[in-house]
Simulated scan of single mutants.
Amino acid sequence: MEKKIYVIRHCEAEGQSSHAQLTEKGVGQAAELAGFFGDMVINHIISSPYLRAIQSIERVAEREEVGIVVDDRLAERILSTEVLPDWLEKLKATFDDIDLKFDRGESSREAMQRIVSVVEDIFKSDSDNTLLVTHGNLMSLLLMNYLPDFGFEQWKSLSNPDVFLLKSANGEITIDRLWVG
């Protein structure tokens, strides 16, 4: 049986805090996202607990009459609890060394294992079509798990929002980018 997981990066937000709301542009993007999924049957929606992720998919949930299940494993990765003026360089380094970890942060491997566990749970579930809403860094690490060449440069090319389809059929997983932002 074929199972599909639509992995979605949230729409444009006002900031990085867990309570950051969508910008006016992000609200428009959420409407576009709802239109994008307009012809699809959605069985299950799982989202990061961050407000921007939930707001990105609310219209789809309402239209499909599917509740949004919040899963903490989809929260954005914490690179460090310290302010890192050179955070972009540090982030790049964590793509090159997936075990590299900064002050009270999470390594790429740890974050990858977290999101992969969600995907594995979905593939084992009864749901045929699931929307999974998360953040750019975590999405990149998920893709890197299945596509080892996916790295920092590919992360930089992600858009808000972005959508990838992970399809599992006969034990094989394929990945396609569906959103052209």
Rank of each mutant, 00 (worst) to 15 (best):
D176V: 08
D71H: 00
V60H: 06
D121E: 15
G105F: 06
P49S: 04
D39L: 11
T134A: 13
N137D: 13
A53G: 06
F152M: 05
D126W: 05
I57F: 06
G105R: 06
L88H: 10
F150V: 04
R114M: 09
L88P: 01
P49Y: 03
V119W: 02
N170S: 14
I5P: 01
P148G: 01
K156W: 04
V119P: 05
V116I: 04
K4E: 11
A13E: 08
S125R: 02
S18E: 13
S18C: 11
I8L: 07
K101C: 15
D176F: 02
R177I: 04
D126Y: 10
R77Y: 08
E58Y: 03
L165G: 06
E82R: 14
E64H: 11
D86M: 00
G15S: 09
P85R: 10
I54K: 13
L100I: 08
F164V: 04
H135S: 04
D149F: 09
T81R: 15
I78F: 05
N170K: 14
V41N: 14
V119H: 05
E24R: 10
T23Y: 00
G105M: 06
T130F: 08
A30Q: 02
S48V: 02
N137S: 12
D128K: 14
S140T: 09
L132R: 01
Q113I: 07
V180N: 13
N137G: 11
F123P: 07
L142W: 07
V7K: 10
D103M: 10
P85G: 05
F152Y: 15
E76G: 11
E12M: 09
G67H: 11
D149I: 04
E82S: 13
G171D: 07
K4L: 09
V7A: 10
I175N: 02
K90F: 07
C11D: 03
G28H: 11
T94R: 09
V116P: 09
K167A: 11
A111R: 06
A169K: 14
F95D: 03
V41C: 12
G15P: 01
S108G: 13
R9L: 06
F123L: 05
H135K: 08
N137W: 03
M112A: 13
L74G: 07
H135I: 05
S168C: 12
P148H: 00
C11L: 05
N43I: 08
W179K: 00
A169G: 05
I115M: 02
L132Y: 03
A93G: 06
E58N: 06
I5R: 07
M1R: 11
H44A: 01
E12T: 12
M144I: 04
I175Q: 01
V69Q: 13
V66M: 05
H19S: 15
G67A: 13
A34F: 05
E64W: 01
S48Y: 04
V70H: 01
M139P: 03
G105C: 03
V180R: 12
T174S: 15
S157H: 13
G136A: 08
D71I: 00
